[in-house]
Design a protein around this nucleic acid. Structure first.
Lengths: 249, 249
DNA sequence: CGCGCGTTTGACATGACTCAAATGCTGTGG
DNA sequence: CCACAGCATTTGAGTCATGTCAAACGCGCG
């Protein structure tokens, strides 16, 4: 069985982590980051029973879109996803990037319909949680409900920070903040905080930060010139995280 | 007892709605917009017991700030509030405006600490829900938990739309969207959708939309020149909601 | 009634966008 | 395994939407 926690090679790709398909929550390397945290062993068994460990998604493949019937929420198991909201015209906003252990689709609960689109950024897999069954289970499992609320609240809190970023930060501050956010999340997952592969394109990054692709590209170049980071295509090394932090605003 | 649903005079101010202080949820005019929706009568009594109907807040007064100990989440009872997140330097982002029946403080659940600041925009009052007691109650009241999740999800969904607004919309689209959002929420509360008083300043609106005050002021003037709205200080009349809708992008 | 602050209006500056083109990477089929 | 096609990224030049600065105005509070 794979143990994410034990490996921290350079440029390791989250998608490449081997994952047995029907590994139980209790045995999963993501346990401490994931929904079941704090559940009793008996409860965990019940939760395991409703989880569908779904097939792999390949790069660009949709996990769901606004035209998909809502049945489930998802937890990223391996790889990564982006979510977008789109307007009638072509415009769309990348609302978030999601890594292993993170929930996707929580904003669909209210209307019982997906309001955003989710796409795999690389080879990825998810745990599917049928919402009805999750509700049912929650009735007798207050810990589970608390975990869910906590997750929802966490995303809310992150979204408020993102609003600050979009509304008040300069392009430079936006990109610095973004890089450190990714860095922290890799670190939380047992990977190197300073060397990682970006699974999303420059266009996705730019869109998410409310910038033009060209601006992001120019800033990457500048950060590189200023020796804050090193870039080799999608591989990033943070070489001066302190100075990068000071740029976050 | 007041009945919000029965009165729709012009320029009525939400703060001016009379509210008996210890009115029970079942008797509250906000019932159908509020947390208790769908609870059984027995459950409602229990919920009523943990709710603290707090004193009035006056314009500018803080409901909580990031330095307040987290104990409760709140539902606006009358009036309105704004929430902000702030950076180390003076900058802050207005993350939302909250009207009767809407929750404030949901983003605090995750860290059990307020991550934003909430201030009354006018004379206002709230129902205070001590979080521990709410949790306790939820253990035997799945409907309550579902309602809470639904509320969290709703706010999440609104935040995603706001991200789209901040990241992709033009100044004109932002203001049109804002006006219609306020209009819809007034309407949901039984007030006129077309004539209302803005409780927030131009500065708050500008900040919330990621614009300069001057830009907002100029746009108000332009909308007025174009006969989309009429303005008398904080009183707004929407005179061409169709065209305004078409400007939302 | 007068002061102060919120708002409006005007003139100008600029950060980030758009357009354009060169370069480089990646995946595919021969 | 290589060559090519197509897409992503970078870089440069010029423009524009919106911000900044400055000043007048007027409402509302004390």
């Amino acid at each position: 069985m794979s143990q994410l926690g034990n490996v921290t090679p350079l440029f390791r790709d989250l998608a490449k982590v081997e994952h047995e398909h029907n590994i139980a929550c209790e045995e999963c390397s993501l346990y401490r980051l994931c929904l079941p945290l704090g559940l009793h062993s008996d409860d965990l068994v019940q939760l395991d029973e409703i989880i569908k460990r779904s097939q792999n998604f390949s790069r660009g493949q949709a996990l769901f879109s606004t035209s998909t019937d809502f049945n489930s929420i998802f937890v990223v198991r391996s790889g990564s996803f982006k979510t977008t909201v789109s307007a009638g015209d072509g415009r769309e906003q990348v609302t978030g990037f999601y890594f292993p252990g993170e929930f996707v689709g929580l904003d669909a609960i209210y209307e019982q319909a997906y309001r955003s689109n989710a796409k795999a950024l690389e080879s990825s897999s998810v745990c599917e949680l049928p919402y009805d069954q999750l509700q049912e289970l929650g009735k007798n499992m207050p810990q589970l409900q608390m975990q869910m609320m906590s997750r929802l609240s966490k995303e809310l809190s992150g979204d408020k920070s993102l609003m600050f970023l979009l509304g008040k930060k300069t392009a430079e501050e936006k990109l610095a903040t973004f890089l450190l956010s990714i860095s922290r999340r890799f670190k939380d997952r047992g990977f190197s905080a300073n060397d990682f592969q970006l699974s999303m394109s420059r266009a996705d990054i730019a869109n998410h930060l409310g910038l033009a692709v060209e601006t992001v590209s120019r800033l990457f170049s500048r950060f590189s010139d200023d020796r804050l980071i090193e870039i080799h295509n999608k591989a990033i090394s943070i070489t001066d995280s302190e100075k990068l932090t000071s740029l976050c605003g």
